[in-house]
C-alpha cells in the first residue's frame, strides 16, 4: 500500500516536472489537493471580500464616468471570485462549503481588505497599489500546474488589465488637481503602501507551505521575488505623478539593480491576520449578513425549480 502511494507520488511529480497540467480527474497526492483548495478558496474569498472597501464608494463616486468604472471593476472582482470558486469546485468542494469555511474562520482572505477605504483617493490607491500587487502575483499564477486554476487566472489577468490603470489614473488626476486633492492622494499612498507590500506574505525565510507548493509548481515565484518586482515597477510610477513613497530607507541598489526597502511591520501583519485589523469584523459581518439575507431567495429559486421538474414529470 505504502509502496503504491510512493509510486503515485513519483509518477505525479514526474508529470509536474515535465510541465504537464493536472486536471480534476487525474490522480494527485492528498497534500496537493489540500494545498490547492486552500489557496484557490483564499483567493476567491479575497476577490469577494475585496468588493466591500470599493463598494463603500459606489454611491459617492464623483462623476458618472468614475461611477461606471468603479462599478465595472467591482463587478469584475465578483466575477473573479466566481471563476475561482468554480476552479475550487472541480476538486469536489462545493461553494456552500467554501463559504462556510470563510464564515467559521477556517478559510482566510487577503489581509489587505481589512483596511478601510476612507477617501476617494483610496479608490485610486486600491486600484493602483493593491491591484498592482495582486497582478504581479496573478501573472505568475497563470502558469500554475492545476489546469482549472491556471485557466481561471488567464481569464482574470486579461480582465484585470484595466484595474491598475484606472487606479493610477485617479491618483494622477488628483496629483494634478487642487491642494486638497494632492493631500488626499498622498495620505492614501501613506496608508496603503505598507499593507500592499504585506500582500506578498512573509519573507521567504519565514514562509510555511512553500516547499511543496514550489515542487508541485502551484507557486512559481517566491514571496520576496514578487514583492521586489512590485516595488521596482511602482517606485517609478509614483515619481512620475509626484507621490512620495513613505519609506525613508527606500533607495536604488546599483549593484543588485533593484530597490532596497525598509523593514515591513510584521507585528502589524500578524496582528491583522489574527483578527485585529481595522475592518476584520465589519467585513465578515457584512458577508454573513448578505449571505443570510439572501437565503430565502436561493430557497425560493430551488423550490420553484423543483415544482417545474415535478409538473414536467407528472
Amino acid at each position: 500500500m505504502e509502496q503504491a502511494q510512493e509510486t503515485l507520488l513519483r509518477e505525479f511529480e514526474e508529470k509536474i516536472e515535465c510541465g504537464f497540467a493536472i486536471e480534476p480527474k487525474d490522480k494527485m497526492p492528498a497534500g496537493y489537493r489540500k494545498h490547492l483548495v486552500r489557496q484557490m478558496s483564499q483567493h476567491a474569498h479575497s476577490e469577494v471580500i475585496g468588493m466591500q472597501p470599493e463598494g463603500n464608494w459606489v454611491t459617492r463616486a464623483p462623476s458618472l464616468r468614475a461611477k461606471q468604472i468603479l462599478l465595472a471593476k467591482i463587478q469584475d472582482e465578483g466575477g473573479h471570485g466566481l471563476y475561482l470558486y468554480s476552479a475550487a469546485e472541480t476538486l469536489g468542494v462545493s461553494r456552500d462549503e467554501l463559504i462556510e469555511q470563510l464564515h467559521t474562520g477556517k478559510a482566510k482572505y487577503s489581509n489587505i481588505f481589512n483596511y478601510p477605504a476612507l477617501s476617494w483617493a483610496d479608490i485610486g490607491a486600491i486600484g493602483w497599489l493593491v491591484d498592482g500587487a495582486a497582478i504581479v502575483n496573478q501573472v505568475s499564477l497563470q502558469r500554475t500546474s492545476y489546469g482549472p486554476y491556471s485557466r481561471a487566472m488567464v481569464r482574470i489577468c486579461k480582465e484585470e488589465s484595466f484595474h491598475q490603470r484606472q487606479g493610477y489614473e485617479i491618483m494622477a488626476k488628483m496629483m494634478a488637481g487642487t491642494a486638497d486633492q494632492k493631500a488626499m492622494a498622498q495620505d492614501a499612498m501613506n496608508r496603503w503602501w505598507w499593507p500592499s507590500l504585506m500582500m506578498f506574505g512573509p519573507h521567504d525565510s519565514d514562509s510555511p507551505h512553500t516547499g511543496d507548493a514550489f515542487r508541485w509548481k502551484i507557486k512559481r515565484h517566491s514571496n520576496d521575488e514578487l514583492r521586489q518586482k512590485f516595488i521596482d515597477k511602482t517606485v517609478q510610477q509614483a515619481e512620475v505623478i509626484g507621490l512620495t513613497i513613505p519609506d525613508k530607507d527606500l533607495k536604488w541598489n546599483e549593484e543588485k539593480k533593484c530597490y532596497d526597502h525598509g523593514e515591513i511591520n510584521w507585528e502589524e501583519f500578524y496582528r491583522v491576520i489574527g483578527g485585529d485589523g481595522p475592518c476584520n469584523k465589519q467585513r465578515m459581518e457584512h458577508h454573513i449578513r448578505v449571505h443570510n439575507e439572501g437565503a430565502w431567495v436561493r430557497e425560493a429559486a430551488e423550490a420553484y425549480s423543483a415544482k417545474q421538474q415535478y409538473s414536467k414529470n407528472a
Partner: peptide, 26 residues
C-alpha cells in the same frame, strides 16, 4: 441598483444587478 453591489443573494445575481446599473448609468 448599484447599492446592491456586494449585497446580492448570490454572486451571479450581484453581477446581473451591476450590469443593469451600468446600462442605466450609460
Amino acid at each position: 441598483l448599484s447599492e446592491w453591489c456586494s449585497n446580492a443573494p448570490f454572486l451571479e445575481e450581484d453581477l446581473a444587478l451591476t450590469n443593469m446599473a451600468l446600462d442605466l448609468i450609460g
